[in-house]
């Protein structure tokens, strides 16, 4: 009877093993792979994907799905770029506005899903088209940012020096802070318990008297907020806004969530797993860059195979634990 309890952590363990295995394989194969700079870049370069994946984790834990992530990231980046450059809005105000718009956008999608009982798949699909199109309406091309706040404050002053050559980028800091906050929300607040309950069984959650409607709308608002924050970090990272960027980012985010051991049917999973999933995707990319003679499309194939393996693993575990219980 001990196995079912431990089986909750088994996918997480498998993800950690894959992450460690990939990292060790990289260190053995390439000379400079173990350097601090590679590790720091791994976190910094994948900051926006990580934050987007954290948002996707909440939605998937609740048994839903959000396809609008990539489009909202692109929309946020062009909104900030346009506000700061064309309308000379204070950068901080522009960022705050973008975060509010993203959250409201998510809340609107959540309301449609909750009150009209529409499938999340279709509503967030419409959201994806809408955000992408409105992004192009704001500014039809990529838009560079010349503002000092983006060029100097964020990229230089806000990065933390680790030693005299390597410093930790602000995009990475955002990722780490967001991860800590999200873990707190998921595991130590009432709202977090509601999310797990909702994903486990919505009917039971309702019968238990949990505020299902409020929770559901809040989850999508949270996902919208995370996507917008990912957009802000993306803007920091590229120092420009681009309405055509991040096409298919939601797929990478969902892949990271699945590799991280979260069940797509909802109710089971950990944010730490998602973060490891993001780092695994980043490590594959780094390995392919180091190798040099492999093409970047291998990233997608390897990512697809990993998703497959982890789904298989989850199936084996869930059927094994069912057999033990039954």
């Amino acid at each position: 009877m001990k196995f079912p309890l431990a089986s909750r952590y088994l996918p997480l363990l498998a993800t950690a093993l894959v992450l460690a295995g990939l990292y060790v394989a990289g260190c053995v194969s390439f000379d400079n792979f173990s350097s601090l700079r590679v590790a720091v870049n791994l976190i910094g370069d994948n900051g926006f994907l990580g934050i987007a994946a954290i948002g996707a984790t909440f939605v998937i834990l609740s048994g839903g799905i959000d396809l609008s992530v990539g489009a909202v990231v692109a929309f946020t980046s062009i909104l900030i770029a346009s506000l700061v450059e064309d309308h000379s809005v204070n950068p901080l105000a522009a960022i705050a506005a973008a975060l509010i718009v993203g959250s409201l956008f998510g809340a609107a999608m959540g309301s449609l899903i909750q009150w009209f009982e529409l499938p999340p798949f279709l509503v967030t699909l419409a959201g994806m088209f809408l955000a992408r199109g409105v992004g192009f309406m704001i500014h039809p091309q990529s838009h560079g940012i010349q503002n000092d706040f983006f060029l100097q404050t964020v990229s230089e002053r806000l990065s933390l020096p680790l030693n005299n050559r390597v410093s930790f980028p602000f995009t990475g800091t955002c990722f780490v802070v967001m991860f800590v906050l999200a873990t707190f929300v998921a595991h130590y607040t009432r709202f977090g318990r509601y999310i797990y309950a909702l994903g486990g069984d919505e009917q039971s959650a309702r019968l238990m008297g949990l505020p299902v409607a409020r929770t559901k709308v809040l989850i999508y608002a949270l996902s919208g907020f995370c996507s917008a924050l990912a957009g802000v970090v993306y803007t920091f990272y590229t120092q420009s806004g681009d309405p055509a960027s991040c096409v298919g980012l939601e797929l990478d985010a969902i892949a990271a969530v699945v590799i991280g051991g979260t069940l797509l049917s909802g109710g089971v999973g950990f944010l730490a797993g998602t973060v490891m999933g993001v780092l695994i995707l980043g490590l594959i990319q780094t390995l392919i860059t180091f190798k040099g003679d492999l093409n970047s499309w291998w990233t997608r194939i390897v990512a697809g195979m990993l998703v497959f393996l982890f789904i298989l693993l989850q199936n084996v575990i869930s059927s094994a634990s069912k057999r033990l219980r039954g």
Binding site: A255, T299, R300, V307
Partner: peptide, 10 residues
């Protein structure tokens, strides 16, 4: 989704 992610790579 697996084939959607990996298919373009193939």
């Amino acid at each position: 989704l697996i084939l959607m992610v990996a298919g373009r790579g193939v």
